[in-house]
């Protein structure tokens, strides 16, 4: 049987960011293009290569991942915040759907936005440099699983936050440092030993490495670890988001 309520919720989520493409799709492509030009072309020639890969190619997966993380998180967190702020979240809560279906509809919306952004950024990089994707299906897997993790985190933060500030604070003070320290622009070998240990504890490091392997064929860590750790994070955060919706934490009284 087709689950029309669930499919409609997903359809609305996807259509929402497509309608707002100037805010949801264009900025990621433009900022990634700028990073590529400045860090890749202008500074990259002075850095040389990392693990025998040109610096400009080395940073493409990191840039892609940074955009995917930001966009998927922004999609679900802002969608929930707006629905809470304007109270139309009540339309979802009275619909005949489970907490799991509700959270999945926001997460799937975030996955679509993350993956579309990721693919368009990869295409932009492909046009600006001479790189080819090493493994397409594994790249798609990492785009999906990362969007899922951060879409779910967006749901959680969207539910918890009482103001837009709180949503923004999380992006600035948690995601930005984690993605910068997760190896977007450099290899973990380039860091002092103490920082290397801290980096390994950063979940983003594993995802960025996973995508880096899928896109350019090099990895500092076994790819299986990246896959398993990413899946575990996706499951954990999806469960937390679903439980919050089911129990109505901060959204039902």
């Amino acid at each position: 049987m087709i689950n029309t309520p669930f499919l409609t919720l997903i359809y609305r989520e996807v259509l929402r960011f497509i309608v707002l493409y100037k805010q949801t799709i264009m900025p990621g492509i433009i900022s990634s293009g700028l990073y590529l030009v400045i860090f890749g072309h202008a500074l990259g020639s002075r850095i040389g290569s990392i693990n025998n890969i040109d610096y400009i190619h080395f940073i493409i997966p990191g840039l892609t991942m940074m955009a995917v993380i930001n966009q998927s998180y922004a999609n679900s967190s802002s969608s929930i915040m707006q629905a809470k702020y304007l109270k139309f979240i009540e339309d979802y809560l009275v619909a005949p759907v489970s907490g799991f279906e509700l959270s999945m509809s926001f997460i799937i919306g975030a996955i679509f936005r993350g993956v579309i952004n990721g693919i368009l950024i990869i295409l932009t990089c492909w046009m600006l440099t001479d790189f080819n994707v090493h493994n397409y299906s594994l790249s798609l897997f990492f785009l999906i699983i990362t969007s899922c993790v951060f879409g779910a985190i967006g749901v959680i933060i969207g539910i918890i936050s009482k103001s837009w500030d709180q949503v923004g604070v999380f992006g600035t003070f948690v995601f930005m440092p984690l993605s910068m320290l997760g190896g977007v622009f450099w290899s973990v070998d380039m860091l002092p030993k103490g920082w290397q240990f801290i980096t390994i504890l950063n979940p983003l490091y594993w995802m960025i490495n996973g995508l880096r392997y899928s896109m350019i064929g090099i990895s500092e860590i076994p790819i299986m670890f990246s896959i398993i750790i990413s899946i575990i994070f996706a499951i954990i955060f999806t469960i937390i988001a679903s439980v919050m919706f089911s129990r109505g934490y901060r959204i039902k009284s």
Partner: peptide, 14 residues
């Protein structure tokens, strides 16, 4: 059930 809540809560994107 069809519910019409007291406070207007219309989706502004569509």
């Amino acid at each position: 059930i069809g519910l019409s809540p007291q406070e207007i809560n219309l989706d502004v994107f569509f």
